[in-house]
Amino acid sequence: MKAAEAWNGSLGRHWAAHADRYDAMLAPFDAALFDAAAIGVLDRVLDIGCGTGGTSRAAARLAARGRVTGVDVSEPLVARARALSAHLRDGAVTFEVGDAQAHPFEPGGFDVAISRGGVMFFADPVAAFTHIGEALRRGGRLAFVCPRPAPPGGGEREALTRLASLVGGDHAVDTSVAAAMASLSDPERTGVVLEAAGFEGVSVRPVSAATRWGADAADAADFFLSRKQGPPVTDGIRAAAADVFRPYETPEGVLLEAGTWVVTARRPY
């Protein structure tokens, strides 16, 4: 199954329905993303793979006299983003359904492009980043966060492997998305892709943070298993999932360490 189909199907609907939980899980990486993006008060911001609009709304607070355009291939996510952003000033944030690889952006219409985990799903990464670069003004900035592989032998990696085994082979959607998620996991390849797309000054640095999966092990298990397709979840599977999460319980909730790359680049002047 293609990633676009997944994001317009059950996966996209799940993210839309649990926007607060997903934003809370990914929020620890926001500071690194926005530090890298250096959004100014007048900036015109493009948010690629904006999801339910959390990063778009955060960008709008920084670009208080500018504007933000969020683009996502998922209709359920864009609909949720619009609903969650209805309270903002007119024109502060707009959302469009589309594939950033080919969406009809205004040439040179943006000062900065950002993405929190939304740039790994392109069918042709070089073509996609070339198109995004053309949407930036000369000297415009690109900043995004993408997954970094967990180190071999790490407890979190083992935990996620065990959790995946519990949902079995009925998770073709997650399998296709997981493969796409890793498309920029090699920083050398990322640099090659961006330079081939016409960017310069490429920088890739690692950032790690604790991601919150739930209030406690049972809550985290319920959230994880709510994505499962196919036969109903048995009590045994639910208990096994809670057992996987239990070692990661803290007073702040169930926290699993995760790593990302923070990537920055610039369109030449």
Rank of each mutant, 00 (worst) to 15 (best):
E5A: 15
A6D: 01
W7A: 03
A16P: 11
D30G: 13
V41Y: 00
D47W: 01
T55S: 13
R57Q: 10
A60F: 04
A63F: 01
G70C: 09
G70S: 12
V73Y: 06
S74W: 06
P76K: 05
V78Y: 02
A79P: 00
L84C: 04
A86Y: 02
A86F: 01
A86M: 00
D90K: 11
G91W: 11
A92Q: 12
G98T: 06
D99V: 00
H103I: 11
V112A: 05
I114R: 07
I114P: 05
I114C: 07
R116F: 07
V119K: 06
H131G: 03
H131F: 03
G139V: 14
V145D: 02
P149D: 11
G153A: 12
G155V: 07
G155H: 09
V177D: 04
A180L: 05
A180P: 08
T190L: 06
G198H: 10
F199M: 00
G201H: 07
R205G: 01
W213V: 06
A218V: 14
G230W: 06
P231T: 12
P232G: 09
T234I: 07
T234E: 07
A240R: 14
A240W: 05
A240V: 07
R246V: 03
P251Q: 12
L255I: 00
V262C: 13
Y269D: 11
